[in-house]
Simulated scan of single mutants.
Amino acid sequence: MRRPDRIIDDASKQNWVDLYAPDGLQPYMKLSRLDRPIGTWLLLLPCLWSIALAAPAGELPNIWYFILFSIGALVMRGAGCTLNDIADRDFDGKVERTRKRPLPSGQVTLLQAIFWLGLQCLIGLLILLQFNLFAILLGAASLVLVAIYPFAKRFTYWPQFFLGLAFNYGALLGWAAVKGSIETAPIIMYLGGIAWTLGYDTIYAHQDKEDDVLIGVKSTALKFGETTAYWLIGFYALIFVALLASGYLAGLTLPFYIFMAGAGAHLFCQIRTLDIDNTDLCLILFKSNKVFGLIVLVAIIAGKFSLPL
């Protein structure tokens, strides 16, 4: 049965979890943010970029790896969000946007949330074990970053930096899964991805800045304030240049640069239309980074092929 009073504020009123999922499963799905899939996309896209970048010239990326990384991104994003909700359970009840989350609203207990976290991590481990040893060890190391992020807002105004470290790790892991090693191109992509996350999650954080001040947590939205647009110019310039450099090092062809012009235009439009005091617009712009990421993915895949003369 649909319960409008349980729809979390930043989820679509027509999200599939509230519309169709069984009542007993809905709290667990919401712990994993399945009612808000944009985070899974933002975690997955750097993985797909890297897998596509590592593909041989003239070939499509490994579709099986696309499938495995998609499942992995879904469960590990869910695990990270569950851990975040466990860590923030005392804060979330004080914030309008988060008070309906399963833990502060009492839909699940702390023990149930911990069990759900463990189950998701187990599935993630099974996915990771499908790759080569180097990728397995590299993937295991990412758990340190996943564990740090939920607590970063307590001690730094740069929690988005720690989110970037975790959310873009797939730029390294995707390449490692294909190649069994790490080279300069995916490292540059990873560093650029951190800047991308600093940009889009600062936009997202402007939704909560008033509540963050009241409860005493930190964010780049609070640090940058009215200068946010200038910081975004820097962050988005970094991701754009980093992607161009990664493509160049990987030997991508002219179609890559043509599509990247469209990706750059998308970032420019985000900055041009930003209003940090309009929470609805901030959410729309944040979600639009899925479009940017998909344009980049198409650019990389197209760049593996030469234009016919």
Score class of each variant (00 low, 15 high):
Ala221Gly: 11
Leu222Tyr: 00
Lys223Cys: 10
Lys223Leu: 08
Lys223Glu: 09
Phe224Leu: 10
Phe224Thr: 08
Phe224Tyr: 09
Phe224Asn: 10
Phe224His: 09
Gly225Thr: 03
Gly225Ala: 02
Glu226Arg: 13
Glu226Gly: 07
Thr227Met: 09
Thr227Leu: 09
Thr228Ser: 10
Ala229Tyr: 14
Ala229Val: 02
Ala229Glu: 14
Tyr230Trp: 13
Tyr230Thr: 14
Trp231Glu: 08
Trp231Gly: 11
Leu232Trp: 04
Leu232Phe: 02
Ile233Asn: 15
Gly234Leu: 02
Tyr236Pro: 07
Tyr236Leu: 10
Ala237Asn: 07
Ala237Ser: 11
Ala237Gln: 06
Ile239Cys: 06
Ile239Arg: 01
Ile239Phe: 03
Phe240Cys: 02
Val241Met: 11
Ala242Gly: 00
Ala242Gln: 01
Ala242Tyr: 01
Ala242Leu: 09
Ala242Trp: 03
Leu243Glu: 01
Leu243Asp: 00
Leu244Met: 08
Leu244His: 12
Ala245Trp: 14
Ser246Leu: 11
Gly247Gln: 06
Leu249Tyr: 02
Leu249Ile: 00
Leu249Glu: 13
Ala250His: 06
Gly251Ser: 12
Gly251Asp: 14
Leu252Tyr: 07
Thr253Gly: 05
Thr253Leu: 12
Leu254Ser: 10
Leu254Pro: 07
Leu254Gly: 06
Leu254Lys: 13
Phe256Glu: 12
Tyr257Ala: 00
Tyr257Met: 02
Ile258Gln: 08
Ile258Ser: 05
Phe259Ala: 04
Met260Pro: 01
Met260Arg: 09
Met260Trp: 15
Met260Gln: 10
Ala261Cys: 10
Ala261Ile: 12
Ala261Val: 12
Gly262Tyr: 15
Gly262Ala: 05
Gly262Leu: 12
Ala263Phe: 15
Gly264Val: 03
Gly264Glu: 02
Gly264Gln: 08
Ala265Asp: 03
Ala265Trp: 15
Ala265Phe: 15
Leu267Tyr: 06
Leu267Phe: 11
Phe268Arg: 14
Phe268Gly: 00
Cys269Val: 14
Cys269Phe: 15
Cys269Met: 15
Gln270Cys: 05
Gln270Val: 02
Arg272Cys: 01
Arg272Pro: 01
Thr273Gln: 13
Leu274His: 10
Leu274Cys: 02
Leu274Ile: 00
Asp275Val: 03
Asp275Cys: 09
Ile276Asn: 12
Ile276His: 11
Asp277Tyr: 14
Asp277Met: 09
Asp277His: 15
Asn278Asp: 07
Asn278Glu: 01
Asn278Arg: 09
Thr279Ser: 13
Asp280Val: 13
Asp280Tyr: 11
Leu281Asp: 02
Leu281Ser: 05
Cys282Arg: 05
Leu283Arg: 03
Ile284Gln: 12
Ile284Tyr: 11
Ile284Ala: 13
Leu285Ile: 08
Leu285Gly: 04
Phe286Met: 05
Lys287His: 08
Ser288Cys: 03
